[in-house]
Design a protein around this nucleic acid. Structure first.
Lengths: 208, 208
DNA sequence: ACTTTTGTTAACCATTTGGTTAAACTATAT
DNA sequence: ATATAGTTTAACCAAATGGTTAACAAAAGT
């Protein structure tokens, strides 16, 4: 009795709402998003939003969780793998740039809303367990330093460098695009290049 | 008759409004800021906001312009100077980190609002002249590459690396602080270290 | 067939929010 | 002292916005 039957033309309304909410929240943020905008975008009545999702807060949380799960767990799977250090640089750059190419607002959105209420989102949404955890990665750097294969560098700074070089261009995309006078296509191409540029740059910087 | 006389306790009301507006806008953004919050923060009546500044949009624009002018023109003065390339890396890191230490929300705020309406803010507020212009810096990199003093690297990627490593930790500060389990003081200390770490990292990466 | 459950809407409601008004207060000039 | 111009406030207003209601439509269960 919970089975769903849809008319041919319109797909599942709940999914259409989610897609619309995602689009609106991701571009305008929680505070800037209007429930009416989401309803319009989904092509349905505003009341239906509240039928499927209690209120704006709940709808937002659903979207945020959905998106944050794309953004963070990937860090763990890369950083905690058994891959050699240098491969991790490349995997991180490649996989994150791929994700952000499909979803350019993602880092802005996630950072933005964490900024709004750091404790709520970092802790209360995920359990404290599946938070991004770079400790194995940091230890691995330490080990390589001690082995003498790479120069002495603080693991934390190296991590910040990797994150910054990979993620920043997407966060600042509107600024960069205007300033460097490049178009959408050139931006995409530049980001593709960075999949190789970033690991190369890092390795050049730290290899003895 | 336009002279101002203030009672001892309260300073110029206009300035108090600006300070309050700055604080509220910088932490909540345009959409999240409430005029009442600003009035409360300034300790004055809401109507006074409209007495000094026509409306929310105008007040916001005043603040944004004020802040953006701290953020951008510095780029030009560094990038267009006659300093040698390696010094520019250090000057950029040092001066920007100093600015952001005093004003940690600045990059988030600026990027955020440019994101909201790229054309309005990047073009219509400044004339097209005093926009950040890294062309001399990019040419300088090109020249060093051709001289053979540094490795072959795309100037654009190098610039993005510098910007990302310098600015990103501040944009993502709430995330970083929670994730690396560091407190405010340790964050500050880490950023101080980065003034040297970043130029060192870059030079290690590109010096032949 | 008809009852019940689920999905959807138009109209409405309450609160929030940006903005206005008119009156009061303060300092200065005459 | 009194008029004047500039400053500040309490009270108010209209629009925007999140959310509710009641009626209706479509499916599913019997």
């Amino acid at each position: 009795m919970v089975k769903k039957k849809q008319t041919a033309k319109d797909l599942n309304a709940e999914e259409m709402i989610l897609a619309a909410a995602r689009k609106v929240f991701m571009t305008k943020g929680m505070a800037g998003a209007r429930m009416q905008d989401i309803a319009d975008e989904a092509g349905i009545n505003k009341a239906l939003l509240h039928y499927y999702f209690k209120d704006k807060e709940k709808l937002f949380e659903t979207i945020f969780l959905q998106e944050a799960k794309k953004f963070f767990p990937k860090i763990n799977s890369i950083f905690n793998s058994d891959d050699p250090l240098f491969e991790k640089f490349e995997r991180f750059a490649t996989e994150y740039i791929d994700e952000m190419q499909q979803n350019p607002y993602l880092p802005w959105f996630v950072i933005n809303e964490i900024n709004r209420d750091p404790d709520q989102f970092m802790y209360s949404i995920w359990g404290s367990n599946n938070l991004p955890n770079p400790s194995k990665f940091l230890a691995q750097i330490e080990k390589e330093v001690k082995k003498g294969t790479i120069k002495r560098i603080s693991p934390m700074h190296l991590l910040m460098n990797l994150l910054g070089m990979t993620i920043f261009p997407f966060v600042a995309k509107p600024m960069i695009v205007r300033n460097m006078q490049i178009d959408e296509l050139q931006f995409r191409a530049a980001m593709e290049q960075r999949k190789k540029e970033i690991p190369k740059f890092i390795i050049d910087a730290i290899l003895k």
